[in-house]
Computed example of a mutant assay.
Amino acid sequence: MPSLSEISYNRDECISAVREYYNFLVGMYLDEAEVVEPPPGGWPSITTATMAPLGKTDEVVSLLRHLPYIREKNDDMYNVQTAAWCYFTNWEADASLLIRDSSCVESVKISTESASLYEILPPHVVSITKSPRDWTTLLIDTELGIGLWYECPGEVRDWPLREKVLEDPYDYEEDEEQAEWRGECGAWSIPDFFEVLKDQFRELKFVPKSPRAVVDVYISEGVAFPDMIEMLQGIYREHGWPDMEKYRKKDCLKAVQKALKERYPRLADSDWVEEE
Rank of each mutant, 00 (worst) to 15 (best):
G42M: 12
K73I: 00
E32G: 01
I70V: 10
C86S: 15
E32Q: 06
A83L: 03
N74V: 03
L64I: 07
D31I: 05
I70Q: 01
V26P: 02
M51A: 07
G41K: 02
P40I: 07
P39C: 13
A49M: 13
G41T: 02
T47R: 02
Y78V: 12
N79Q: 13
W43V: 04
P38C: 10
P53H: 06
Q81G: 03
K73Q: 08
T48P: 04
L54W: 01
E32I: 12
Y29G: 11
Y78L: 14
E34I: 06
Y69N: 12
P38F: 09
G55T: 07
A83I: 00
S62D: 14
I46A: 10
M77C: 04
I46F: 06
E59W: 01
L64D: 00
N79P: 01
E59Q: 15
E32C: 05
Y87D: 02
M28T: 14
M28I: 11
T50P: 02
E32R: 09
F24D: 03
K56H: 15
L54F: 06
I70E: 00
M51Q: 04
P38W: 11
E72D: 07
E32P: 00
G41C: 11
G41E: 00
E72L: 09
K73W: 02
D31A: 10
L25C: 10
V26L: 01
R65V: 04
F24C: 07
M28L: 13
N79W: 09
A49P: 01
R65Q: 15
L54E: 04
R71W: 04
E34W: 04
A83H: 02
D58K: 09
E72F: 08
T82Y: 02
V26R: 08
D31F: 06
G41V: 01
E72S: 10
P44H: 06
D58E: 14
A83R: 03
K73F: 08
E34S: 08
V80I: 14
L25I: 10
I46E: 01
P68R: 06
F24G: 02
C86F: 05
Q81I: 05
T50I: 06
L67S: 01
V35E: 05
G42K: 04
L64F: 01
T48C: 14
T48N: 15
E37L: 06
D75H: 10
